[in-house]
């Protein structure tokens, strides 16, 4: 199969991401898909560092660093500022981590989505506050160790379903993606680019230091997240129409969990519990997909 991915690079090699960082690869693919007429809005997140310190930037598009909880609102303001000055075709890309999206930034994101402001909001989700040193977020999955959920008190709540939250806003487009399927990722960004209104992309981004994995298996794990149905690839249009964009192979979750230091304390029965939760969520997704077609 030949990938339909633009060759033009808008991200330079001088970025300071960790080896194997999914978020760095995600930005590279998303910018390839969006092209030069893009302005990136960055709240506090790993990418505040990855982009490079003053006076450098690893991006060849304009970049505005904004406060942690403001990606949605700052992006709305940038879009309004451009439009009132006659620029209607630049894509304003809010680029936030899971903390800045699921937690501290959810209010501003909800505001922008409810107004259906014309922005593309990408959450690159590495499932914890990785930039501050691996603290639990509401995107951290059940069972995971973090520095604020030690193994004897691991996270015992499920990951927040941010896609359902966004669907509830009836925004025109929301989709999940991951760096292990770059053709799917790029196609979704290209589709999102043609739509007006708030578009939301949830990208699972492996984090070798935070997940306690060797950097060379990061992509493999992202692939396993999809194939185990832990992180299905799908789209939601107008909050209603669900489409699964890749049928998972149905690999048992243990094959995903066993490589990751953050899950190594889990017992067989706890892994079985995760398998059950995943099956239930998958059934939910299937029934929503069937109902909407």
């Amino acid at each position: 199969m030949r990938f339909q991915i633009p060759e033009h690079e808008l991200m330079g090699p001088g970025h300071v991401a960790c080896p194997g960082c999914g978020a760095a690869q995600a930005m590279r693919y998303v910018l390839k898909a969006l092209g030069e007429k893009t302005i990136v809005v960055l709240p506090a997140c790993c990418w505040s560092i990855i982009a490079g310190p003053f006076p450098y930037s690893s991006l060849q598009v304009p970049l505005y660093h904004t406060a942690f909880e403001t990606a949605g609102a700052a992006a709305s303001g940038i879009k309004a500022g451009l439009e009132i000055q006659g620029d209607t075709d630049t894509t304003v890309l809010a680029w936030a981590g899971d903390g800045g999206t699921f937690d501290i930034g959810i209010q501003a994101l909800s505001g922008a989505a409810e107004r259906n402001d014309d922005i593309l909001y990408v959450c690159y989700d590495n499932e914890a506050y990785m930039n501050t040193g691996i603290q639990r977020s509401s995107a951290t999955p059940w069972g995971a160790w973090t520095t604020t959920t030690p193994v004897r008190h691991f996270k015992n709540r499920p990951k927040k379903d941010i896609m359902m939250v966004m669907a509830a806003h009836k925004i025109p487009y929301a989709a999940t993606a991951t760096v292990a399927f770059p053709d799917d990722l790029v196609a979704k960004v290209q589709k999102a680019k043609t739509i007006h209104g708030t578009r939301f992309l949830h990208i699972l981004s492996p984090c070798p230091p935070g997940w306690k994995i060797p950097s060379e298996i990061a992509i493999r794990l992202a692939r396993l997240a999809i194939e185990t149905k832990i992180f299905p690839l799908y789209e939601i249009e107008n909050g209603e129409k669900y489409t699964i964009t890749r049928q998972p192979d149905g690999v048992p979750v243990i094959e995903y969990l066993k490589f990751q230091g953050r899950f190594k304390h889990l017992t067989k029965s706890q892994m079985d519990d995760i398998q059950d939760m995943v099956e239930k969520e998958w059934e939910n997704l299937l029934s929503k997909t069937e109902r909407s077609h």
Partner: peptide
């Protein structure tokens, strides 16, 4: 949806030269 976002949006808009 809040004053916090009001100022964040003003910041974004002003950064474009508006």
């Amino acid at each position: 949806e809040s004053e916090h976002s009001a100022m964040a949006s003003c910041i974004g808009a002003s950064a474009t030269g508006a």
